[in-house]
Design a protein around this nucleic acid. Structure first.
Lengths: 243, 243
DNA sequence: CGACATGTTGAACCTCATCAACCGACGTGG
DNA sequence: CCACGTCGGTTGATGAGGTTCAACATGTCG
């Protein structure tokens, strides 16, 4: 708990953080932020890098500052399912238990703000506001997971792809504090490969590709390039997605 | 906050509760338990009864004391997916928000110990131990949900059915403080109809029925009656389930 | 007893997975 | 500089796994 000048500089870092007000640390007052800041570490990862492996315990928590992280579960024979996508400012890691039944991998280049496991848990114990925020975050994660269970269990390939694109479209509309009319020609960049999409939707890459082609043909979406999507009519897409 | 004799009788009820030490209220000391007990109400429901509807806000929380509750999400055209099964002593309801994106229905006859929404949230605010327990419970729910995403997205019909039966077998082995050898001839009663199974596994009833028949033929399971299953060799079943 | 719900079985069909070829972009090394 | 391999993506042909539709069996309840 030293309070040398260096601390103040680091302290500043949190106050200037791009995601601060939306991340779980947004719950903290200046004093609490300070103690969290002291244990945090910025970290940059390349796309494809494994962040948490399935075997070893995770020794840290982290906020996603930029980029996208995949949470992946695998079957012994190699089949895999993405069980969560983390965008900024999502939180990575499971409180109260180091065991993760999945591994985490950078889908794009990623910046993390990470905290050593034990120290973070200590801060958690002493700052109920932080735990509360994390709890609310977890409840939202659970809601999303259940939404995805409906998609995986009951939607057709076309509905799956449409639902996923719709999710990204909405997300980007929310993010960009968009001055554009939110319902007209939504535009977003897909942060995943077709293979990732397939693993998220419980499909194969071929099926994903075909469904995208079909949506293009029906003019429900159009592509600037392989990764950049345009949605001229959000309602039409919602219709295909089965709400 | 009256403390008339009646209160003590009710107080006793929690102390004698069958699920107390496993339920979220297990985190509470006597004093805390008392305040929770004062707002609780026992409730009995018949199989098939809707507990929380999708439209209206839920005005209560509850512990499942006995029986099984289905959490169901539906698509506009009627397709449905069970996104969670609650056994005793699971907790029903979403803290910090009345909105549920699914509805809850009794799969069997059910006993609940329920708490009015607002009062429970008030207790929650003043008893961090309870909130903490609920948080841990929610984290486990999230883990299960993700496990199920893998099943829904990547497992075959046979693996799905086997996984589900395995889950119930393990569950019943844990419950019955079994003196029986845990690996030999596990026996359990299925608390669901084939239709519920199908909705939980993302299949049709016909497929479920056929897979059960197939597992029977391969001697991996046997049935005393439609609802009572025997697992002579747990390892064989695990093998079919794809771990 | 008939009506209804739950479950099983059969046959036909269809969606999606599989296998394979191909395309364009990119990077590397001869 | 261009040939080459690789990677991400698309498209085509084929077939299997699961759905759909239908009939039938069994058990329960008024």
């Amino acid at each position: 708990m030293h309070t040398n000048p260096g601390t103040d500089v680091e302290f500043l870092r949190c106050n200037q953080c791009a995601i601060r007000h939306h991340a779980v640390c947004g719950a903290l007052n200046q004093e609490e932020l300070k103690s969290l800041n002291q244990i945090s570490r910025q970290q940059k990862l390349k796309a494809g890098q494994v962040i948490i492996s399935e075997e070893e315990d995770a020794d840290f928590f982290a906020n996603v500052v930029s980029g996208v992280v995949k949470l992946i579960k695998t079957l012994p024979d190699g089949r895999q399912q993405i069980v969560g996508l983390l965008f900024a400012p999502d939180f990575l890691g499971r409180a109260f238990g180091k065991q993760q039944a999945f591994y985490a991998e950078a889908a794009t280049d990623v910046e993390l703000c990470s905290f050593p496991h034990d120290q973070f848990e200590r801060v958690l114990k002493t700052h109920p506001g932080l735990e509360h925020r994390l709890f609310e975050y977890t409840l939202n994660e659970l809601d999303s997971a259940r939404e995805w269970m409906l998609l995986l269990g009951r939607k057709t390939a076309e509905e799956k792809v449409a639902s996923f694109l719709l999710m990204l479209a909405k997300r980007s509309a929310l993010m960009g504090c968009n001055h554009q009319d939110p319902d007209v020609n939504l535009r977003f960049v897909l942060p995943l490969t077709r293979s990732d999409m397939a693993d998220y939707l419980g499909l194969t890459i071929e099926t994903v590709s075909r469904q995208i082609t079909k949506l293009k043909a029906r003019q429900i979406i159009s592509l600037e390039d392989n990764r950049t999507f345009l949605v001229p009519d959000k309602l039409a897409l919602e219709d295909v997605a089965g709400q």
